[in-house]
């Protein structure tokens, strides 16, 4: 089994799903906005899946980095009148740079401390945006962000653009994991000392990955801002950071499609369930069930033969499947 054949499965599956959704949208155009939202969440969740699922390093700052990306592009396009394409680079680079700078001291912390520290980054960003005066529009946020020139107001184009990026990311993810660097990342998850003894510069590798994770969240924020046309301090908030981690854990942190499935379930459930309380109850309940019966997420419920093609790395480990009522995924 080569790295090549392994990823054909998951990429094929994803493209088939996108094609299906596209067809569905021909009958109900609202499908496109839902799928665009899922795609934007996937931009935040997928790199976190790599960092957390494969590298064992948790982050609760994806919402904050997305907010930095969204506000960067909002400020550049509305205050300075530049094109969204010009602001794409700063919207990705700024969160990545911030992440890289803070990475080295915090990434050596144990998991729980790291979760709390990254969570507090969200608080700092949120307060900064609320008190940012005219620059960030304070509590009101920023309105009138222009649409992307190659998308305009077309819902189907937004859908295609976002999912093209997600497919490219999935390909990159699986390539990464089937390379020696992917093995190094798994070694870091197992044991930092082991990774170092294999010649892995753990601090640098994790910092780079943390920066890439933040940069892609910035990309998600950029899409978000230009798709919705406005941003406010609470639109990409601490709650979103927690929800992104929820998507990763729910879908399966060790599989490449897991975070995307988590993003889809989260978005659909938020759309169909009325009221915040029933949503909270649903998400809390489903998370408890998943963690009890399938700690590695819903993707581990997929039959093994199937999974070997659709996941990259976990495929080689011969962990027995937990016994769970069938049909929970499809």
């Amino acid at each position: 089994m080569t790295g090549y054949s392994k990823w054909l499965g998951s990429v094929g599956l994803l493209i088939a799903a996108i094609a299906g959704v596209t067809l569905l949208g021909e009958f109900r155009p609202s499908v496109y906005s839902t799928s665009t939202t899922i795609g934007i969440f996937a931009l935040l969740a997928l790199p976190l899946g790599l960092l957390y699922g494969q590298g064992g390093t948790v982050s609760l700052a994806q919402g904050a980095f997305a907010a930095i990306g969204a506000y960067t592009t909002a400020i550049i396009t509305t205050r300075f009148g530049l094109s969204p394409l010009t602001s794409l680079l700063p919207a990705v680079v700024l969160p990545a740079l911030i992440a890289f700078i803070i990475a080295k001291p915090i990434l050596r912390l144990p998991e729980l401390s790291l979760a709390l520290v990254t969570l507090s980054i969200g608080t700092v960003v949120e307060v900064a945006l609320q008190r940012g005066g005219d620059l960030t529009g304070s509590f009101n946020g920023i309105n009138g962000i222009p649409a992307l020139p190659f998308v305009g107001t077309s819902r189907i184009r937004a859908h295609f653009v976002v999912w093209t990026v997600v497919v490219l990311l999935v390909i990159g993810y699986v390539n990464y994991m089937s390379s020696l660097r992917g093995r190094a990342l798994n070694a870091i998850r197992t044991d930092h000392l082991l990774a170092q003894a294999m010649g892995v510069n753990v601090a640098l590798d994790l910092s780079l990955l943390f920066a890439i994770t933040a940069g892609l969240a910035g990309l998600g924020g950029w899409f978000y801002a230009h798709t919705l046309g406005y941003v406010a301090p609470d639109s990409l908030s601490i709650a979103l950071s927690a929800n992104v981690l929820f998507m990763v854990v729910l879908g399966g942190r060790k599989s490449v499609l897991g975070p995307i499935i988590g993003a889809a379930i989260f978005t659909l459930a938020s759309d169909f369930l009325p009221g915040t309380e029933s949503q909270g109850m649903f998400f809390g309940g489903i998370l408890i069930l998943v963690l009890l019966f399938s700690p590695d997420g819903l993707m581990t419920l997929v039959p093994r033969r199937w999974r070997q093609r659709s996941t990259s790395v976990a495929a080689l480990s011969a962990k027995p499947n937990p016994v769970v009522p069938s049909g929970a995924v499809q």
Binding site: L180, R183, N186, T190, D191, L316
Partner: peptide, 23 residues
């Protein structure tokens, strides 16, 4: 011994190649 006990023997040995063949 420090290794991921869930990973295959092949994966564990492959890890050794990292320092000289890192992409």
């Amino acid at each position: 011994p420090r290794l991921d006990l869930d990973a295959s023997v092949l994966d564990a040995v492959m890890m050794g190649f990292y320092s000289r063949n890192k992409p």
